[in-house]
């Protein structure tokens, strides 16, 4: 019956604009993971990522009655989050001002998000580590795709400043690269762990 899970956005926005905290919380719960994934995809550390996400929400509050296309709210949030991330990166002086996002690829990772200790499954830990073996663009794309609920391509495109049509092929290419990195790691890992007992 429901064409899209977001087809009640117009209603939620209107209610939030009138001060309805429950409606606002629904919007937050629905999109917070996407915004967090975007901020982390830009390699912001936890404090900066928190700022980028909060700034994005503040801008939505300011624009509650000005969202022209409520069904595309998630894309609006994605675009806004992207701007906030780039602005924070610019302010932090981590890259030359007025540069292009591609320059991000040259940045060292300030805080690898890997906490392998939390991953009991060795294969999961290997998969997470393998992300660091990808190109920056692929790592960023896949990190955004990890948002839950799964983002639509339009939202991913908004967050990356890319055309929607490029997301599907890029996703396929990046997942293939990831498989290759994992396969290579497995070869090396198996050799290194020869003689070690595996459960």
């Amino acid at each position: 019956m429901l064409g899209s899970p977001d087809n009640d956005n117009a209603d939620l926005l209107a209610r939030a604009a009138a001060g309805d905290q429950v409606a606002w919380n629904t919007l937050v719960d629905r999109h917070n993971s996407l915004l967090w994934s975007i901020a982390r995809s830009f390699r912001l550390d936890v404090a900066d990522a928190a700022d980028a996400v909060q700034n994005t929400w503040l801008r939505l509050v300011e624009n509650l009655d000005r969202i022209a296309d409520p069904e595309r709210l998630a894309s609006w949030l994605g675009t806004t989050a992207r701007r906030e991330c780039l602005q924070l990166i610019r302010r932090a002086g981590r890259r030359p001002t007025g540069g292009t996002p591609e320059l991000l690829a040259e940045l060292p990772d300030p805080a690898p998000p890997l906490d392998a200790a939390l991953l009991l499954d060795e294969r999961d830990a290997a998969l997470w580590r393998a992300l660091e073996g990808l190109s920056e663009r692929c790592r960023q794309l896949l990190r955004i795709l990890m948002a839950s609920p799964p983002p639509r391509y339009a939202e991913v495109a908004a967050a990356l400043g890319m055309a929607v049509g490029t997301i599907g092929p890029a996703r396929q290419r990046c997942l293939e690269s990831l498989r290759q990195v994992v396969a290579a790691d497995n070869l090396l890992g198996d050799r290194a762990s020869t003689g070690r007992e595996r459960p």
């Binding site: 993971s33 967090w36 939390l118 999961d124 997470w128 990890m146 948002a147 839950s148 799964p150």
Partner: peptide
């Protein structure tokens, strides 16, 4: 992607 998402939920949630 589903596996990656499940990992992200555990190691890097908001």
């Amino acid at each position: 992607v589903g596996r990656l998402r499940a990992i992200a939920v555990r190691v890097d949630p908001p």
